[in-house]
């Protein structure tokens, strides 16, 4: 086989393998949980492959083997060994191994006090509430920031239908079920930005319900949390002041909170530090002033039937003032 004959196969393999890395992949684990899932998957893949190989060989022998061999294969022993004994001795240890590996219940905390975060799935975004040691809650949305190395205890809930919280690089899926609180404890090994996605069909815009997890070194995380706790940044320019005024006068505060201003709605995402997030509208748009303006105006086109009100009556200048104010809320 020459190089030129194998070349297309190599290229194809290379292209397919690029799907194995990236910021939303089970094959590139960044936490103990994800690694365990990865190990178990590999055991299953390899074991399954070996069993398949044996079955193919036996099937071949059953067709092409000598008469003696075929008679033996057709005997009762084959059924007893292959159909009863073999599954029993492989599946039972595998089950025990799986239990041991994944652990029943939340992962051990290793004596560390976990960071407690509640994530509530809503059609079609994520409400994120950090709770500090004093019991104060800090509200954010569509982005989860966690400190590297420290366990994070996530309480997963839903405000409406069943959603599923899934950050493949960090942990397996956990459903968010009405009336229940499911717990997921995870911790990231190293800094990074990972993509999460709702993994349970939850209505029309299900595919547009993503989020980012940002794992930060402990010190950076502490700094970030301090900023996140503080009230919103004051407007820094004439345009931003107008933006705040328009934001309030057009009723945005009926749904959104911006701490430090009269806006204290709780229907939609808290916008106190919206400008500091990586994405807008649950992972749908890059977070820029232009995107914010586009979202305010065309949110029903971007994410059909989402619960944000259409605000197409705002003038372009008004939109741009509001969006520069919001983009500045870092």
């Amino acid at each position: 086989m020459t190089f030129f004959q194998t070349c297309p196969a190599l290229i194809l393999a290379a292209v397919l393998l690029t799907g194995c890395g990236g910021d939303q992949s089970v094959l590139s684990p960044f936490s103990e949980n994800a690694r365990t899932v990865n190990i178990l998957s590999n055991v299953l893949f390899i074991g399954g492959f070996l069993i398949l190989a044996v079955v193919i060989v036996l099937a071949g022998l059953a067709v092409f083997g000598s008469a003696h061999l075929r008679r033996r294969l057709a005997g009762e022993n084959t059924v007893v060994v292959g159909g009863l004994v073999f599954p029993l001795v492989t599946l039972t240890p595998l089950l025990l191994y799986g239990y041991a590996l994944l652990g029943a219940g939340p992962a051990p905390l290793d004596g560390q006090r976990p960071l407690e975060v509640t994530v509530i799935g809503e059609q079609w975004w994520w409400r994120v509430i950090y709770t500090d040691s004093a019991g104060n809650s800090i509200r954010s949305a569509n982005e989860l920031r966690i400190p590297v190395g420290r366990p994070v205890k996530l309480s997963l809930k839903t405000a409406d239908v069943i959603h599923s919280f899934w950050v493949p690089n960090l942990a397996g899926k956990v459903d968010m079920i009405p009336g229940r609180t499911n717990t997921l404890t995870l911790s990231a090994d190293s800094p990074g930005i990972f993509r999460g996605q709702c993994a349970e069909y939850c209505g029309g815009a299900h595919a547009l319900m993503a989020f980012k997890v940002v794992a930060l070194p402990a010190k950076e995380f502490a700094t970030w949390l301090e900023v996140e706790q503080s009230p919103a940044r004051e407007p820094q320019s004439q345009v931003e002041s107008e933006g705040l005024e328009l934001f309030l006068a057009n009723g945005c505060g009926g749904c959104h909170s911006v701490r430090g201003t009269p806006a204290r709605g709780t229907v939609g995402p808290d916008l106190t530090h919206v400008g500091g997030r990586k994405t807008l509208a649950a992972g749908v748009l890059p977070n820029t002033a232009e995107s914010i303006a586009r979202w305010i105006r065309d949110n029903q086109e971007i994410k059909p039937e989402n619960r944000m009100l259409p605000y197409r009556s705002l003038e372009p200048a008004e939109l741009s003032a509001i969006s520069s104010y919001l983009a500045g809320l870092r």
Partner: peptide, 22 residues
């Protein structure tokens, strides 16, 4: 408002400080 039903407060647009277009 009634946050569970995604209903914002009426006064955010119809209160005394709201824009004149409402």
């Amino acid at each position: 408002g009634a946050p569970e039903e995604a209903i914002p407060s009426c006064l955010s647009c119809h209160g005394q400080n709201a824009a004149e277009r409402y």
